[in-house]
Amino acid sequence: MASSADKLSLALVAGEPSGDMLAARLLSGLRPHLPDARFHGIGGPQMMAQGFESHWPMDQLTVRGLLPVLMRYRELKGIQNTLRDQLLAERPAAFIGADYPGFNLGLEEQLKAAGIPTIHYIGPQIWAWRGGRIQKIIRAVSHMLVVFPFEEAIYQQAGVPVSYVGHPLAELIPLTPDEGAARRALGMPEDCNVVTIMPGSRMSELKYNTVAFVQAAKLLKARDRTLRFIAPMAGERQRAYFLQLVAQAGLQDVEIQLLDGQSHTAIAAADAVLVASGTASLEVALFKKPMVIAYKMMELEWQILRHFGYQPWIGMPNILAREFLVPELLQHAANPEALAEAMWKQLSDAPHRLRLAQRFTDMHHSLLRNSAVESAAAVLRVIERAK
């Protein structure tokens, strides 16, 4: 296949770190088959480590939330239109949108209409909210790659070609994490009591979650003076903003060890994790850790979005389990007292911790595939059919 694909061009777009990780795994699977292909578009450091050319900084696309997106609509639309025109002129063998559906589906719809095969890697959560988006997906996507097994039937029923390729995180995270090694790596005694707090990697998440999370840590510390708190920071901007928010709230006396990145080490080291809803909650489950999932946002955005959900869960571990395995506290419910009380139960209920570990182990096995190989094979099949 590689000999017939010399000088092949594939375009990809990732708009945030999770998509960068997904696309990088895909590229690592494609490169052996397409050694001379050009991979380009918009991506992050993990994609560029695979030889990817990014025409814009990925950070320029990274924005979350209805109102923040609306405020930057003209800028994002300008990037989308410029890239569309470049790709229509170039006509790559395929376009691959790595998550980021608000941007990628619109681009994919235009490219597919022009005869360019389009692949979307990670199905938008139409099973959670915005089910009407399936009509746009039908128009936009030539082939869908999904990371959860239950999603295959949803897209098959809608007539969208689909492949379940497993979740890359299930490969990156060991089935039996080494808690002791993680604590040693962080300079902690192996027998200490550790709580990891993860208010989010986006600035908007930090804005709304940080103070409540740190106040909850202060309440927990008052109940158990031996507790140690750690918080991984996604970058220097996030660290500075976190410290600013803590200072403004007068919470500088809460001892929290801030880490540069190292989110997986921070989760592995924990007895329990207070985590913002999102991919991080799945990571915590794969590390077999008790957790409390929480999320706060701008009040107007909350009032709009709270009516769109199709199911009672927002945390991926609960969605996969189809039950409230771990607590979810949202918006007004995510107050410091409630967060601290829920975390205390996660820390102190030993039988519950054992049951969670077994459920999360079963979940891990269900998501475990060689995603680089599986996703690359699906992309190669699409390219072959389009010749």
Rank of each mutant, 00 (worst) to 15 (best):
G132A: 10
R72C: 09
I126M: 04
V141N: 07
W302G: 06
L8A: 12
P327R: 04
K136Y: 07
W127N: 06
G51C: 09
L172A: 14
T196P: 02
L286N: 04
P290Q: 08
L380T: 08
V373W: 07
E299R: 12
S28N: 14
L87V: 09
N335Y: 04
F242G: 00
R130D: 13
G131W: 04
F360Y: 15
E205L: 06
A216C: 08
K345Y: 10
R355L: 13
N370K: 09
G131D: 10
E109H: 13
A113S: 14
R74Y: 11
Q125H: 10
V147T: 14
Q311I: 15
Q346W: 00
E283C: 00
I137K: 02
A23H: 04
T62P: 00
F52W: 06
A49Y: 07
I116K: 00
L286M: 10
V162Q: 03
A212L: 04
G250P: 09
R359S: 11
K112Q: 14
R353V: 03
G97L: 02
L26P: 06
F103T: 01
Q80D: 08
A231N: 11
G166Y: 03
I256S: 02
R359N: 10
A185W: 02
A231V: 01
E374W: 01
A333L: 11
Q311W: 07
L325D: 05
E90Y: 02
E301L: 03
M21Y: 13
V146Q: 00
L66V: 13
G278S: 07
I126R: 03
R223S: 13
G131F: 05
L320C: 11
A338R: 12
D99G: 05
I383K: 01
R223K: 15
L107W: 07
R184Y: 05
K77I: 07
Q262T: 08
G44K: 00
V194R: 00
P177E: 05
L87S: 01
Q311F: 11
Q157N: 14
I116H: 00
P327T: 09
K289G: 02
V284K: 02
H352I: 01
A276K: 06
I116F: 00
L243M: 14
F308R: 13
A321Y: 06
I383M: 15
D362T: 12
